[in-house]
Design a binder for these strands. Sequence first.
DNA 1: ACAACAAGTCACCAAACAGTGACTTAATAA
DNA 2: TTATTAAGTCACTGTTTGGTGACTTGTTGT
Lengths: 217, 217
Amino acid sequence: MEKKTGKPRERNKDKSKKQFLDAVGKILKTKGYAGLKVNDIAATAGLDKKLIYKYFGGVDQLIDEYIRSLDFWSNVSKEDMPVITDGGEAFAKQMLVEQFDYVGNNKELQKILLWGLSEKRKSLKRVYDEREAVGEGLFTGITDPYFGDKAERFRAVTALLVSGAYYLNLYPTNAKTFCGIDVTTEEGRNEIKKALEMLVELVYTTAPATIRSRRNH
Amino acid sequence: MEKKTGKPRERNKDKSKKQFLDAVGKILKTKGYAGLKVNDIAATAGLDKKLIYKYFGGVDQLIDEYIRSLDFWSNVSKEDMPVITDGGEAFAKQMLVEQFDYVGNNKELQKILLWGLSEKRKSLKRVYDEREAVGEGLFTGITDPYFGDKAERFRAVTALLVSGAYYLNLYPTNAKTFCGIDVTTEEGRNEIKKALEMLVELVYTTAPATIRSRRNH
DNA sequence: ACAACAAGTCACCAAACAGTGACTTAATAA
DNA sequence: TTATTAAGTCACTGTTTGGTGACTTGTTGT
């Protein structure tokens, strides 16, 4: 029986659980992981903290469930991947630039990345493992075959570029410029993107001839 | 009058101040900036916390004085810089690899870098400003002239490589591999270093001909 | 209508933490 | 020797935080 009398106050476990999970996300985005205190979460959710212990068992489990609900990498990989005819050069460029912007526009992901650098936590590790898994699929499927015995080298390059893109997005907490480039402005960010594309291009165009010949294979 | 009777207990303001500053460093290296609580600092220093308020005015001022005492970048720049005849290519390679290892071997710097990503703080900003100043000297003195109108591009490349080197050193908190490369092993780190050198080489050897001709100028 | 269960609230406790007033005592200068 | 200064200790207060027992009240099946 569904009753929607006046509005005496809702009483719905599932909705309340969601309110707590949403509160975690909100606090994370604004104050970062260090702001995730029981009292604050309860206050943000507009419910009593006791319910956190009832429904989740504790703050830690609530946080873990929140983290488990995240899914930053599912959009990547199989989807927007056209036919690869250039060994993945265009794809790699697009991917790196997109990652750079994606992190830049996603405060939640920024905080998660920072959290992952700061605190050891099983549920966080899973987020990174999933990204690694997605990346592994792209490497083995696209670039490893192209670069052959230099595959590891290309992975190291990508590691540097991706992690650089991450760091530069986390960087503007105290200072704004890195190597003289203001990473908070559109101009500065465009410089970074152009550098990303140029580096990918350089790595692809100077791959060993014996390997590059596979392009027409 | 200098008395060194038995050992009734030393009473030396300067030494005590140093003990507090050392305690801050020790805690920072082990627990990170979040572990810098008054009681813990006092306990680590083996002195009463009241003295922190007496000598420094408070924990914040103590921490600021500690940060001000740091000096990570003075060794760079003017010193180990031989005559530059290649536009700074060898120097850039060496610098990047050294930075990568330097951060990797310096837990204190790692924690400071992480701190700078996590918290806004004037004294921290100064650390970054100083690094920027050192870098600026190298750019304007060595690479900017070489790359000419592509100088900004080279700066962006360097920004990516340096920040990538930083991130990869902070990364192994939860996961060990990034793009399939284990950044905790000697092999993995060597791959990163080789990639750094290769990328610098590529950028230098493909600089616009109009600019590269300045090499013999 | 009403018993029963679970959603939700509230008051309370305990531990961790920052900060301070009042004290003790070593060093020093007259 | 002794008065003075300041180094250092200790006990205490107040606040924030995590966590729980006892309670109230909405919902649901009969």
